[in-house]
Structures are given as structure tokens and as C-alpha cells.
Nucleic acid binder design. Structure first.
Ligand SMILES: [Zn+2]
Ligand SMILES: [Zn+2]
Length: 488
DNA sequence: CCTATCGGACAGTCAACACA
DNA sequence: GTGTTGACTGTCCGATAGGT
């Protein structure tokens, strides 16, 4: 860029769409009671983030081949004749990051637990972030080339321009410019009438799974999910992040063929009145723009890295999706990718008799034209409604035996689960857990997978995404950051 | 092949705003 | 006062044009 004068002319209308992640993400350690309200009742609140990426294939679908497991955890034998979801690591509060991805030609599932401590390592697919110097030298600035902090800078040394290598001067930012109102903050309160519908939709598997995880930091089994063959060509990716966050994802720029979709996408998201559910226009370019907010009680603050990670994971997953699909024999078929982000807030209130009441709030939205769906789910014991999910401290074991969400496949299941639940990992710090775990990580993981595979077969009953979009209302738009971009 | 040019994506900053 | 938002401002990637 030529130094000064053109700098201002080159103002780009991109600011509104820029990706940004910011959040109160807290370390996820269970601090029973004494952190927040130490009265007659204790209250714990946990927030999870579920990201679902659906890739719909239309046409060209063939029978699924045997699942292939991709995992950074090593060799796990995939179940055949099922579409297993492997749960990454047993607990969500152990401070490491261990995605597992199960793949076959048609389906890919990935469930991530969140990285909970700085020691967590992202998947190797993470994109390096571009670093830029605070002030480029005038020569580099003029040439729009990379500079460094030394003076003369390396580029000037190479180019023998050391005498003119001076730092450029940043002009001061303008002040006093009024802005419109920002979008409101605050937690999402969903409308109960938008409660999740019952379905055997493949998407529901991830949802239920996550619901159960939301209550139990220790994931109660369900490694193996029997889902119907996704004849609809639905390919879900499920990422789970137990943290509070705000997510905004900007437009992607991928294939030139999708270029004309991009601009329409923001509009679609921002005004739910006139959306055209034009599926063919969404080929292989999953985009989303979303914000979810909620709160969580915890004293630990550990910001930044995890969110960055999340963002990377998301985009990496998307990248991966595209690559994978393009290599696939199915690649000639058209695809629609849709992203849903779902925020779970699980609140546990414990009274003085140690009786716990759980409440789970779910808010989700799809970034696809199809819908934003938001929902609240109160957990109620004994409800016969399939669209109500129940969990509580003491009855998860019974639940698994009696309710439709779970089907025990053998007798060992209750003891298995009990032992899992009783192993109170919460008293340890994430880093302790991490170092502890690291040595035996693989071994224990294998063990657990084995255990849990025996323990449950999972039966989906819940739908998060609804592919049709007739019934959708405009959700409270203030939750979606896209909307404000229109004011620009 | 090399270098120069530069559009625009990306990154960092921070005042305005929201909220306790 | 603290935290968040989002616009502003600058960096520099990568495409491409032009020269040798
Ligand atoms: Zn320089
Ligand atoms: Zn220089």
C-alpha cells in the first residue's frame, strides 16, 4: 500500500463481517457450592457449546462403507454396521483436547471436548495466524511487503535500502464519532414453544449426547450410536465446547462458484422475514455468523486460547469437510452444508439434603437459511414427552434402563456408569488431571471406550435441526451479531 | 524468471457502548 | 469500573503485470 494518502481511500466494507471471538470462557472446574451462593441451595451452572455441521448430499449417494476412524488418540476399532460416535475423552474437565473423528464415505462425526487449560493442544489442522508488526517501515509499507521490528528491517537490508528504512507513522484514531447502539448482551432465554421436536433425525444423536454431557461432566457412556442410515445424506459433525463464548464467524471465501452466495448469506441471517430457502445456492460453503451468550459460575478465568482454538477448529473442520468431500467418490453430488451452534447451560441446584435439581437451557441456531431454532428444555423426571430430556444426579442410571433415550445392552451398564460417576475428578485441577492422565491417556481411553461400548446403545430421540423451515419464527434477533452489520 | 504493484483479506487497536 | 462491540487503521498475502 502506498504510504499515506491511499490508505484512507482503501477503506473496505469488511469490518462488519470479520470474525471475532470473545467470551467469558472460564476454566471448567467443578467447585461444589462454595463459589457462588452458599446458602441453603447451591447452584452450579455450566455452559457448553455444541457446533453441528451438517453436510447434505443430494444425489450420488451410495451405501456407506465401513467406517474409518480418524483419531489423534490412536487405534480404536470402529464398530461396523453402525455409525459410532466415539467420545473423545471421558471427562470434559480434564484440560486437554482430544478430538476423535469417525469417518466413512458418507458420514463423519467429530466430537470435541473443549481444551480446558493452556496445555491443551489443538488439532494439527490449526491454521497459523498471520502475525504482523506494529509498524512497518516506510519501504515495506509502500511495497505492501512484510516487515519486521528491526531497523533497518531485513527486507530493506536485502534490498539495500537501509538508509530509508524508517518506521512509518501511525496516525491517531479519530475520536468523538458516534456509533449506533450495539446489540444487546445477556443470556439467551428461549421460548418454550420452540422446544425441540422429537425425531430420529441423525442430528438428534449429537444433541442428546450433549445434553447428557451437560449434566455430567463425566460423559456417561454412549460411545456407540445406532443411527439410521443417513439416506438423506446428512453428514453431521459435532463439536462440543463446555464453555461460554461468543462466536462470530465471517464469510468464507472458498470456491469462486460460491461467490454469489456470500453476500446473500448475511442478509439471510439478519432478516428472517424474507429468506429464500434456496438450497442449491449453498453448495459446499458453510457459513455462519452467530453469537451465543450465557454465563457460568466459576472463579477461573482462562481466556483467549480456547476461543481461538474453537475458531480454528471450526474452520478447520469446515476445510476438512470440503477437502474430504472433494476426494470422495461422492464428490459429484451436490452438497449443502449447514452449521448449527448450540449453547447449553446446565444448572444444578443442590439443596441442603443434597437433592439436586437440574435445569438445562438450550439455545441453538442454524446459520443456514433454513432456520434459527431456539429452545429451552426443562429437565423433568418421568416425563413421557420425548422432547423433554431428563437428567438428574441420582437417576441417570435408572434413566438409562428405562427411558427411551437409552437402551442398555447388557447388565453391566449400571455399575459401569456408577463407577464413572463416582470417580470424582472434580476435585483436581485441570492441569493435575492433565498430567495424570497424559501417561495413561490412551490406555484409559481405550478402556473407557470399551466399557461404554458395552454399556449402551444410544437411541436418538431429539432433533436440534429441522431441515424444513416453514414453522420458524424470527428469533430474538439481538442474539445474532450479523444484524448490526446492516446499520453500517 | 525476477521485481514491482496493489486489491483486499486479515490483524490489532481502542473509543463507544452495555451493564453490573 | 469492567467487559464487549465493532469500526478504524495498518499490515502484508498473493495475484498479476511488466521487464529482462
Ligand atoms: Zn521493512
Ligand atoms: Zn525497512
Amino acid at each position: 500500500m502506498t504510504g499515506s494518502p491511499t490508505m484512507e481511500q482503501k477503506k473496505l466494507p469488511v469490518s462488519a463481517s470479520r470474525e471475532k471471538l470473545a467470551a467469558n470462557n472460564r476454566n471448567y472446574t467443578m467447585t461444589h457450592g462454595d463459589s457462588a451462593h452458599e446458602q441453603e441451595t447451591r447452584s452450579e451452572e455450566r455452559t457448553y457449546m455444541l457446533v453441528t455441521v451438517l453436510t447434505e448430499q443430494s444425489g450420488g449417494a451410495t451405501a456407506p462403507k465401513e467406517p474409518r476412524l480418524e483419531s489423534n488418540n490412536g487405534n480404536i476399532t470402529p464398530q461396523t454396521q453402525q455409525y459410532p460416535i466415539i467420545f473423545p475423552n471421558a471427562t470434559l474437565n480434564q484440560g486437554f483436547y482430544q478430538p476423535s473423528v469417525l469417518t466413512n464415505e458418507m458420514t463423519t462425526y467429530a466430537l470435541f471436548s473443549a481444551p480446558l487449560s493452556p496445555v491443551a493442544t489443538p488439532p494439527d489442522t490449526s491454521k497459523p495466524k498471520r502475525h504482523q508488526v506494529k509498524n512497518a517501515c516506510v519501504n515495506c509499507q509502500k511495497a505492501c511487503k512484510k516487515c519486521d521490528d528491526s531497523r533497518p528491517c531485513n527486507r530493506c537490508i536485502k534490498g539495500k535500502m537501509t538508509d530509508t528504512c524508517k518506521s512509518s507513522i501511525r496516525k491517531e484514531r479519530k475520536k468523538g464519532i458516534k456509533r449506533g447502539p450495539y446489540k444487546k448482551r445477556g443470556r439467551i432465554v428461549a421460548d418454550p414453544k420452540d422446544i425441540i421436536a422429537s425425531s430420529t433425525n441423525i442430528t438428534s444423536t449429537g444433541a442428546i449426547t450433549l445434553l447428557s454431557m451437560a449434566r455430567h461432566l463425566v460423559i456417561p457412556a454412549i460411545p456407540s450410536i445406532t443411527v439410521p442410515n443417513p439416506t438423506g445424506g446428512v453428514t453431521p459433525y459435532v463439536l462440543c465446547f463446555p464453555q461460554t463464548m461468543t462466536i462470530k464467524q465471517k464469510q468464507d471465501h472458498q470456491k469462486p462458484t460460491t461467490a454469489n452466495n456470500m453476500e446473500k448469506q448475511e442478509k439471510t441471517l439478519s432478516s428472517s422475514k424474507e429468506k429464500s430457502p434456496d438450497r442449491s445456492s449453498l453448495l459446499s460453503s458453510p457459513q455462519q455468523n452467530q453469537q451465543l451468550n450465557s454465563e457460568m459460575i466459576d472463579e477461573n478465568k482462562n481466556n483467549g486460547s480456547r476461543l481461538t482454538l474453537l475458531s480454528q477448529v471450526c474452520s478447520d473442520m469446515l476445510d476438512k469437510t470440503d477437502k474430504k468431500e472433494s476426494l470422495s467418490p461422492l464428490s459429484h453430488s451436490s452438497q449443502t452444508t449447514r452449521i448449527s451452534m448450540l449453547s447449553f447451560t446446565s444448572t444444578t441446584q443442590t439443596d441442603d439434603h443434597e437433592k439436586a435439581t437440574d435445569r438445562l437451557q438450550v439455545a441453538s441456531t442454524s446459520h443456514h437459511v433454513d432456520l434459527p431454532v431456539r429452545q429451552e428444555c426443562e429437565i423433568m423426571k418421568g416425563s413421557s414427552e420425548e422432547n423433554l430430556i431428563r437428567f438428574s444426579n441420582e437417576n441417570i442410571r435408572q434413566e438409562t434402563g428405562t427411558r427411551t433415550q437409552y437402551m442398555p445392552t447388557n447388565q453391566t451398564q449400571s455399575t459401569q456408569v456408577q463407577s464413572i460417576n463416582n470417580s470424582n475428578n472434580f476435585s483436581q485441577t485441570p492441569s493435575q488431571l492433565y498430567s495424570n492422565h497424559q501417561d495413561h491417556q490412551q490406555q484409559r481411553y481405550q478402556q473407557r471406550i470399551q466399557q461404554e461400548t458395552q454399556a449402551y446403545t444410544f437411541r436418538p430421540t431429539l432433533t436440534i435441526l429441522q431441515p424444513s423451515n416453514h414453522q420458524q419464527q424470527a428469533p430474538a434477533q439481538h442474539n445474532f451479531s450479523v444484524n448490526d452489520s446492516t446499520s453500517k
